[in-house]
Design a protein around this nucleic acid. Structure first.
Length: 308
DNA sequence: AAGACGAAAGTGGTTGA
DNA sequence: TCAACAACTTTCGTCTT
């Protein structure tokens, strides 16, 4: 996690994360890609004569999974070409062309629409490129396995996005996905489980720590409080207070306690709202936290400090 | 008056027979 | 497929600041 960039230029967040596999530095709060790996534009081959040059040189746009046909595509002749042929050849090519269009339209039109939707939702949520690429790949696989049948395209898109977010440790809650995509939360959850099971995508249970940066900046807490919350969460995980609990509730409670300790008090309501849980859940988690981690005296001393 | 607290009843999802 | 179960929510009354 070495970085000479300390703050996100867009939202001034300090929560930057390095995605090794993509060579990106990403702001966890707003999803801004701050730095992308330099692309080596040089040749990776050598050519010694014109024959080799002809074989080895190649051009074209880079392949990307966010284009419906990965930026590649075939079309059989143009009308002008075909009419020059005349007779039987013409008929043959007309037939081929028709067939190709039929094959294309079925799957590719779906993909086109889906990717448009995917881009719309993810730009709304400000998700980094790596997540968009990953989710479009997941969606593509889902289509190829016929998993979209019986489900709306939008819900599968949302499910793929949710899965991709989790994989990339930039979690968004189901609620946020639901708002951005206009799909019911339950429906997203269902399709998410379905496609991850069918495609054999292994996803680690989401880590409460991943939610902290976004919650804490939404509450305008300073970095100190946030790292305090991380500390609390780590202790909580050691004591196994986190297993089986909703990660957002735990993250919210840790943040609430951290804010109290650092004299940056937020109401339970405020914290609950940004985390998408209720005050009751925060209370329950927070009671467990202070009990198990022995934070009572610490809080009391802070309270008496405030009274002075 | 607003926030914190806790009890009680309800909901949706998982699990194990 | 059904019932038991844990986590979480909703609602509401009470206490504290």
């Amino acid at each position: 996690m070495t970085s000479y960039i300390k703050k996100c230029p867009d939202c001034a967040s300090i929560n930057l994360i390095v995605k090794e596999e993509r060579g990106e530095v990403i702001c966890r709060d707003c999803g801004l890609v701050i730095e992308e790996k330099m692309i080596d534009m040089g040749q990776e081959w050598r050519e010694f004569d014109s024959d080799q040059a002809g074989k080895r040189r190649r051009t074209g746009a880079p392949i990307t999974v966010t284009k419906f046909d990965q930026g590649l595509g075939t079309s059989i002749g143009t009308d002008a070409d075909i009419y020059r042929l005349g007779g039987k050849s013409k008929d043959k090519y007309m037939r081929l062309q028709k067939w190709q269009q039929r094959i294309s339209t079925a799957i590719e039109r779906n993909l086109k629409l889906a990717l448009a939707e995917l881009k719309r939702v993810s730009s709304y949520l400000k998700l980094p490129h790596s997540v968009i690429e990953d989710s479009s790949e997941i969606y593509r696989n889902a289509v190829q396995r016929g998993l979209v049948r019986g489900r709306s395209m939008e819900s599968v898109v949302a499910g793929a996005l949710y899965a991709a977010c989790r994989r990339h440790e930039v979690p968004r809650t189901l609620d946020e996905l639901a708002i951005a995509s206009g799909i019911d939360k339950k429906e997203i959850g269902r399709t998410y489980r379905f496609i991850t099971r069918e495609l054999g995508i292994r996803i680690l249970p989401s880590n409460p720590v991943d939610y902290l940066p976004r919650f804490s900046s939404a509450l305008k807490l300073n970095a100190e409080t946030q790292s305090k919350a991380v500390e609390i969460l780590e202790q909580a995980q050691e004591q196994e207070l986190t297993s089986g609990r909703g990660p957002t509730g735990i993250a919210a409670a840790a943040l609430y306690v951290a804010a109290l300790i650092n004299n940056e008090k937020r109401t339970q309501r405020e914290v609950a709202d940004v985390a998408g849980v209720t005050e009751v859940t925060i209370r329950n988690r927070y009671k467990e936290l202070i009990k198990e981690l022995g934070l009572e005296e610490k809080l009391k001393s802070k309270v008496s400090e405030n009274k002075k």
